[in-house]
């Protein structure tokens, strides 16, 4: 391997490592301890970014996600509990912002439609199975059917 290509390879490795480093911290925020950082990350992944429809505010680069991350940090620093933080965001952005929306009149369809569909599927399978069993007669039953039909006037 020539020295030039070796330098190139080294530069490439540094570039990769920098990319990985650049991707990990969010908004350059320092936490007092690892547990707080973990709690922060866990909370962020619970909230849907209102602008991007299907991305959590943990990973989104949208300005509104940056604002919501800042809001979560501010509430955490002020000593708010997880439920308080959830309620805070929900009061402003509605159920949409929660990836685990509460059960209520507006979300009944969301929670129960899959169950109802599974129920329909099971009903169809059971019916088909019953019909198939009814359709297959034993040899003795077949003879009896033939006899009965012969006897019929």
């Amino acid at each position: 391997m020539g020295s030039l290509s070796r330098i190139g390879l080294a530069a490439w490795c540094v570039w990769l490592a920098a990319g990985a480093l650049g991707a990990s911290p969010i908004d350059g925020f320092d936490f007092p301890d690892a547990a707080t950082a973990e709690r922060y990350q866990a909370l962020l992944s619970e909230f849907r970014c209102p602008k991007c429809l299907n991305e959590s505010i943990a990973s989104s680069g949208a300005p509104i996600a940056v604002d919501l991350r800042r809001t979560v940090r501010r509430l955490m620093t002020a000593g708010a509990g997880d439920d308080e933080i959830r309620a805070h965001l929900r009061a402003r952005y509605g159920d949409f912002v929660l990836y685990d929306p509460p059960l209520g009149p507006g979300t009944w369809a969301l929670w129960f439609a899959p169950l109802a569909l599974a129920g329909v599927g099971v009903a169809v399978l059971v019916r088909a199975g019953l019909r198939r069993r009814a359709a297959s007669l034993t040899e003795r039953e077949r003879e009896r059917v033939a006899r009965l039909l012969d006897e019929a006037p």
Binding site: I64, D67, T71, R92
Partner: peptide, 11 residues
């Protein structure tokens, strides 16, 4: 900063 925006549920 967008803080009033967050309180208004602006996205």
């Amino acid at each position: 900063a967008g803080d009033l925006g967050v309180d208004l549920g602006v996205y």
